[in-house]
Every structure is written in C-alpha cells, then in structure tokens.
Amino acid sequence: MNLILAANPFTPGQTGTPEAVLFWILAPLAVLAAVSMIFVKKAVHSALLLAWVMITLAIFYIAEDAPFLGIVQIVVYTGAVMMLFLFILMLVGVDSSDSLVETIKGQRVMAMIGALGFAVLLIGAIGRSYTGFAGLTAANTDGNVEGLAQLLFTRYVWAFEVVSALLITAALGAMVLGHRERSSERPTQRELSILRFRPGSKLPGAPLPNPGVYALHNAVDVPALLPDGTPDPSSVSRVLKARGDVLDTKAFEMHTIEEGEDESK
C-alpha cells in the first residue's frame, strides 16, 4: 500500500525514484543530525536533533509501507518520549552543558575503532544479505493496521500480553523510584507556628508580604515595601532573583514626608 511515494511499476528489487529522491535528501540529514547530536554541548540541542532524526525515520517508515509505525513513531516517540526527555532535562537543569573533554584515557580512540569496525562489519554483512525484494503490497491488502493487528492478536498474542505486563511493571517501577521516603514526621500546623514564633527563628512569623503593590510595574518583580518604607527582598520569587529580573528597589522606596512630592500634591 504505497500511499504516496512508491510508483508502479518499478524495477524488481528496486524502489521507485521518488522514494530514492526522498531517501537521498533525508538520509544525509538524518546522519548529520545524529552526528551533531552526539557532538553538541547542550542536552536540549541533542534532544531536538534526536527528535529530528526520529521524524525522519517516521517518514522512512511511511515510505516503507509501514504507515502505522510511522504514525506511532511520531506520536509516541517524538511526541511522548521526547517530551519526557525534555521534561527530565528541565528537572535536572536545562542549562547544564557537558564538557566534551574526554577524561578516560583511550576512550575516544577505542570508541571510534569499535563503532567504525562495527559499522563496517554490519555494512559489509548487508552486502551479503538477502537481496530479494518482496514488497508489502500483498501483506497490506487489508490495510497495514489490520495486518499488524491480525499478527499481534494471533501469532504474537503471548508476547503482546507479556509486553503489557512489562509496561505496568515499568510504570510501577517509575513510581517506586520517584517516590521520596519521608525521614521524619510531617510537621503539624501547631509545630510550625511554634517554630515561627520562637526567638531566633528564621521563619517569618506572619506570611510573607506579597510582592509588588505598584501598578506602574508588573507587580511580581517588584518587592513589597515594609511599613517603615524599606523594601523586603524576600517578597520576590527566588527564580526571578536568580534570573536577575528583579527591579531595583531603590526606585520604589518611600521618601520621607519632608522630601515627598506626592504628599504635597
């Protein structure tokens, strides 16, 4: 079921020209993206490049008469799995970039030799592999999804069930791993109150003041003013402070009555 690209008739053992064109455009890009992926410093960039490779592969799947897998590749892999990656990257720190200096002696050389040797052997083996070309036209007569379903629920039903068990186990495992064990009792409200009002307590007795009371600015990045007119830095989110997005508080400090112009107005 060559939806888009496969042109009939084609030379036996060969794909159609449109597919060849597609391949020769996308394959180098995929290789380039993959190589870049392992050489860029930032993990986010790696993730984006990998997403690109995956989309390329999805296109290839569709071109290879596997539209179901192509769609799944985009939805599940590029969509869900890569988002999970990005999510975790966020948790771990988006900005953290690797140093690309190798610390283990001989690792690079050995890696290159090993991987290139592996690649050469594989490619050499492909040359000797099965050279026939059956095509999936016959297999996909009832539709690709229907064909796959038929196999999945007949010949591969056992593997299917096992894999479902594996998925559940993985979900449970992730929950167990993500769970943080409390080492002490959760403090009660009463205990927290006592803690707050104890002399020398670092916690504020009252709730923190809300940031920003000035309409002339986006209030969140402006610290609140205390009754004595001084600004309270603790009222601004730490994130903003870290980002350097807090406005200078000086501008909003209350001037004394004698100096104030607003009062007189």
Binding site: I38, S46, F85, D98, G114, L122
Partner: peptide, 21 residues
C-alpha cells in the same frame, strides 16, 4: 543508514557523560 545510525548512537553512548544524552 540503519547501521550508520546505530554506530553513531553507540559512539554517543560511549563518549557522552550526561546520562540523559
């Protein structure tokens, strides 16, 4: 292409230190 991508991935596994990468 599959062999090449596989080998590139292998190099990445061996050379990169960031666990996510």
């Amino acid at each position: 292409l599959s062999a090449l991508l596989f080998s590139i991935g292998a190099i990445g596994v061996v050379l990169r230190r960031n666990a996510i990468v």
